[in-house]
Amino acid sequence: MASRSPEAEVDDPVAYYLEDMEMHGRAERTRVAYERVLRRFTAFLGERSATPESAGHRDCLAWVHSLRGALSASTVATYATTVNRFYDYMNQVGAFASNPMGLVMEEMDESIEKDPERRDVDVATMGSFLDRIRHPLHHAIVLTLLKTGMRVGELCNLDCRDLRLSESGLSAYDLEGRPQLSGRGDALYVDATPARGEPYNGEVRTESNKRKRSTVVPVDDELRRALRRWLAIRPDTQSDAEPLFVSTADDWGERLTARAVRHYVRQYAEEMGWYETGAGAGENVTPHYFRHFFTTHLRDRTGDRGVVKYLRGDVASDVIDTYTHNWGDQVRETYLENVYRFD
């Protein structure tokens, strides 16, 4: 097999880089973010009659300067880092001769926020946000994220067998298929196994579950009602895995994607003034923000960091086994007594 020659493809170095990043296993969301920044950078260079290959450090410096004021300092640093990585990689494969962004990075004052201070939203205000969401699917996915703290990929990987609802009245669905849910009341099972590109429950997954250990999360009556409302209108699907959340848009009946969930949340967040293009993670409300909301509010209400870590799937096996073996008292009762309500 002939090796790929970068010299033959430098007419579009961004496309070459993105193709390599896909083969290196970078997630689609990451590649989309890379492309958005690199195309913006390339367009700026075009206005200066330059290309990524011909650009000098002053072109890169001018681009960074143009971002200031329009974007947060952390976002400026993120954009510059993306371009710097692009140049480093293209140098290594022999497509470019230098990295003009390297010098700019050394002198930049901006840095990426590793732990941004997030927007402070109280329970009542979040309830007002939920009231705006009328679509049964959208309401169910946002409430599930808020009530469980799971990641968006973990939500998309849920199958009907991962949900147990007593007296659901929905005979068309197998809502007691997981032995891990036996005797646990109404609950969701979030498995640590699913991985992007790997088959799981008869279906190749496009998202990975990132938790350290599988977790059983209680379902309270507010979330139960939202899930029943969704399941009552859920379209049929061709997947034997019977995904819990499926699309009601053009890809009707197909497993909901993380990209679609982010799109839905962004639409509603923009209506509330909670999302602005170019703003940092501390300002925008995204699906990951709901995980932060869950952690903050449930930890403050329970005073039990261990239970919250268990529910998030963040704790090591020796700790998680303690909660698994005494799930009813230490997890379910603590959760149901303290979880916030929006209705």
Rank of each mutant, 00 (worst) to 15 (best):
P6H: 11
E7V: 06
E9Q: 10
D12W: 03
V14I: 15
M23V: 13
M23G: 10
A27F: 10
A27E: 15
R31E: 10
Y34W: 04
R36E: 12
R39F: 05
T42P: 03
T42R: 15
F44T: 12
P52C: 04
A55L: 03
A62V: 07
H65Q: 14
S66W: 13
S66D: 15
A73Q: 11
T75D: 08
T81I: 06
T81L: 11
Q92N: 03
A97E: 07
L103S: 11
V104Q: 09
M105K: 14
E106D: 12
E107L: 14
D109N: 07
E117K: 14
R118C: 01
R119C: 09
D120H: 13
D120E: 15
A124T: 11
D131L: 09
R134P: 00
H139M: 00
A140P: 05
T144N: 05
T144E: 10
L145H: 07
L145V: 10
L146H: 04
T148V: 04
G149W: 03
G149R: 04
V152P: 08
C156Y: 02
D162L: 03
S166E: 13
E167W: 02
A172W: 01
D174E: 07
G177M: 07
S182W: 05
R184S: 08
L188V: 12
T193M: 06
P194D: 04
R196N: 11
G197Y: 11
E203R: 13
E203C: 09
R205E: 10
T206G: 11
S208T: 15
K212T: 12
R213G: 05
S214K: 09
D220T: 09
E222K: 12
L223P: 06
L223R: 06
R224M: 02
R225W: 06
A226K: 01
R228M: 14
W230L: 07
D236T: 14
Q238G: 09
P243N: 09
F245W: 10
E254I: 02
A258M: 02
R266F: 01
Y268C: 04
A269V: 09
E270T: 10
E270S: 07
E271I: 11
G273L: 06
Y275S: 01
A281K: 14
G282Q: 09
V285C: 09
D300F: 00
R301Q: 06
K309E: 12
Y310F: 11
R312C: 07
V315Q: 01
D318Y: 00
D318V: 02
Y323K: 02
N326Q: 01
G328Q: 10
V331D: 00
T334H: 00
E337W: 00
Y340A: 15
F342W: 11
